[in-house]
Design a protein around this nucleic acid. Structure first.
Length: 575
DNA sequence: GCCGTTTTCGGCCCGACTGTTTTCAGTCG
């Protein structure tokens, strides 16, 4: 079994949790957490590095953690972690996630009442035994009772960003329209363009005479307003989405925008930087002593710290501060850069709209070409096309192209990768196409070696141009299948072929980390809507956001090329 | 446990709120 970055990060996170329950030095714990976070964001697999000595060059990894990484990769286990697991009952870690329970209170429960897991806690609460423990007043007990009643999965569930947007934008508009409010922005992971959001962070700019939180009571979609001061409130929308509201004056708006956009790690790095320069950064501004150096404008906050303004999508502490310091931030891809879309369905298979309507919608979306990629015939795919129907669709496309001016329809298919790595359509059928998108739609649970061999074998086929939704994940529904992405990336680079960033709200696949890996390997990306109806070209925006989070520039993306250049790049994949 | 525009030792981000307290620890974002 090979060790992935996620495994290493998970091990370090677990060590951090267990150490915190033991009451270890807080900075030591933080070192483990930072290391885990950094490792998760790496665009390459640590285990693939030739030389274990290189681990120490990674940010936040010193001699000790480098040795632990080496041990984990070599043996698949970590003695230090196993020792901790023997010392700390496993259920205690589950308690850490409950509201109001940090390491100190968890430790108090374990020592005072011998509580070892959530079930113990539930019994102790019911028996009224918690009241005798210091730090567990009536309010804390009530919150715990509530939390234990709720299904834990529900409380932790994150919402896909496209879905969150349907609630975020009306909320933002409502607040922006409150008399006296100067600006309202959705910040947090939403502004950073993460694939999912846990809650909405809303920042409002208003003078002290205005009380936006009070105005929120009149918001139709409000479920409940909890803590509601003038400058800080939190609540929940009717659909269950949590939100936090902060209100600041215009003198602080830029600093607050920075602060509440996060990420946490990015913010910490920024405040460290301020401190090292004798300044102090908070949501109220950047100060030297009492003197304010920056505050109203977010770019000024960065500039005063010697940094270029960093686009929110990059603010994950994955090297953006260093790049900003050297003026080497990438010029990120923008939606307007996209000239076409290479993954689109019609009602010939599982789409809702006709070829003509999809083409018209693509034009309306500002594109100049589109590839029609209906499904190949295969088990489980409704009305998939065989070679005969595909040939007739190609004729229809030829005829349509005759009538079109300034727009090109490319002939394509989304072809299933069978369990053994063969494709669901014969090479002869694929030879007539401009774009061959291949994808896994079945047998998601193969072991990693088999799944990887399957995809690699499919990539060997002569007419393949794009590997679609390479991880197969569906947010909140299906985990990525086990795949050695590093090897797929190398194969794609060598072949060459292109990797898709699927913009469907539940896919967003590749994810940000894999996009960055592809960019660094020089593998071009295809930002695709995977539209199944005329409205779904809007998915392209999600794909662009995801690609930006992976540091993609215009030049890193296949479908920013004008049609003539695109055709050249497509031909380069043929064998 | 990491790391150096103050440092190879001694620091390590910031502020608010909550609840439980008699002045603040713990949690949260």
């Amino acid at each position: 079994m090979s060790i992935h970055n996620g495994d290493i990060a998970a091990a370090f996170d677990e060590i951090a949790d267990l150490l915190s329950i033991q009451g270890a030095n807080a900075f030591r714990i933080r070192a483990y957490r930072r290391a885990a976070q950094n490792i998760r964001g790496l665009p390459h697999e640590i285990a693939e590095a030739a030389d274990p000595a290189s681990y120490e060059a990674l940010p936040g990894i010193g001699a000790d953690l480098a040795a632990k990484i080496a041990e984990l990769i070599r043996t698949g286990r970590l003695a230090a972690l196993q020792k901790l697991r023997r010392q700390v009952p496993p259920g205690l870690r589950d308690l850490l996630g409950l509201p109001g329970l940090g390491p100190v209170r968890v430790r108090a429960l374990a020592t005072a009442l011998k509580i070892k897991n959530p079930a113990d806690l539930r019994r102790a609460l019911a028996a009224g035994r918690l009241a005798q423990v210091r730090g567990f007043g009536p309010a804390v007990r009530a919150r715990l009772e509530q939390a234990l009643e709720r299904a834990p999965s529900e409380a932790l569930k994150r919402m896909p960003i496209a879905q969150a947007a349907e609630y975020a934008e009306p909320l933002r508009r409502f607040l922006a329209a409150v008399p006296g409010v100067e600006r309202a922005e959705i910040v947090g992971s939403y502004r950073r363009g993460r694939d999912t959001v846990g809650d909405l962070d809303v920042l409002v700019c208003a003078p002290p005479t205005v009380d936006p939180a009070a105005a929120l009571r009149g918001y139709a979609d409000l479920g409940a307003l909890n803590a509601a001061g003038r400058t800080k409130a939190s609540g929940v929308l009717r659909n269950g989405l949590q939100f936090d509201l902060r209100v600041v004056g215009s003198e602080s708006f830029g600093a607050a925008l920075q602060y509440f956009t996060g990420s946490k790690e990015h913010g910490i790095r920024l405040r460290q930087r301020a401190r090292a320069r004798g300044m102090k950064l908070s949501e109220y501004g950047l100060f030297r002593g009492q003197r304010s150096l920056a505050g109203p404008s977010e770019p000024d906050v960065y500039a005063t710290l010697g940094l270029e303004w960093i686009p929110p999508e990059l603010r994950e502490d994955r090297g953006e501060l260093e790049a900003a310091e050297r003026h080497e931030l990438p010029q990120l891809l923008e939606r307007a850069d996209l000239k076409g879309d290479l993954h689109v369905h019609t009602r010939a298979t599982d789409g809702h709209d006709s070829l003509e309507d999809m083409v018209a919608a693509a034009r309306a979306a500002g594109l100049t070409y589109v590839a029609i990629t209906d499904h190949s015939k295969y088990l489980g795919i409704v009305r998939g096309q065989d070679a005969g129907r595909l040939a007739r669709q190609c004729d229809a496309i030829d005829a349509l192209n005759e009538r079109l001016r300034g727009f090109t329809v490319l002939k394509g298919a989304e072809v299933d990768i069978l369990e053994d790595g063969r494709l669901a359509l014969a090479d002869t059928a694929l030879a007539q196409l401009d774009v061959v998108v291949i994808a896994v739609h079945s047998h998601f649970d193969l072991p990693e070696a088999k799944q990887t061999a399957r995809v690699l074998r499919a990539l060997e086929r002569p007419h393949v141009t794009v590997l679609a939704h390479p991880s197969g994940r569906l947010l909140g529904e299906r985990e990525p299948y086990a795949l050695d992405f590093e090897r797929v990336l190398s194969a794609a680079h060598e072949r060459p072929c292109y990797l898709e960033v699927n913009g469907q709200p539940l896919r967003l696949d590749l994810d940000d980390v894999h996009v960055k890996a592809a960019v660094e390997h020089g593998v071009l990306l295809s930002i695709a809507s995977d539209a199944h109806s005329v409205g779904q070209f809007a998915n392209l925006e999600g794909g662009v956001r995801q690609a930006r989070r992976g540091w993609a520039r215009k030049g890193d993306v296949l479908n920013t090329r004008p049609i003539a250049q695109l055709r050249k790049l497509l031909r380069a994949t043929r064998r």
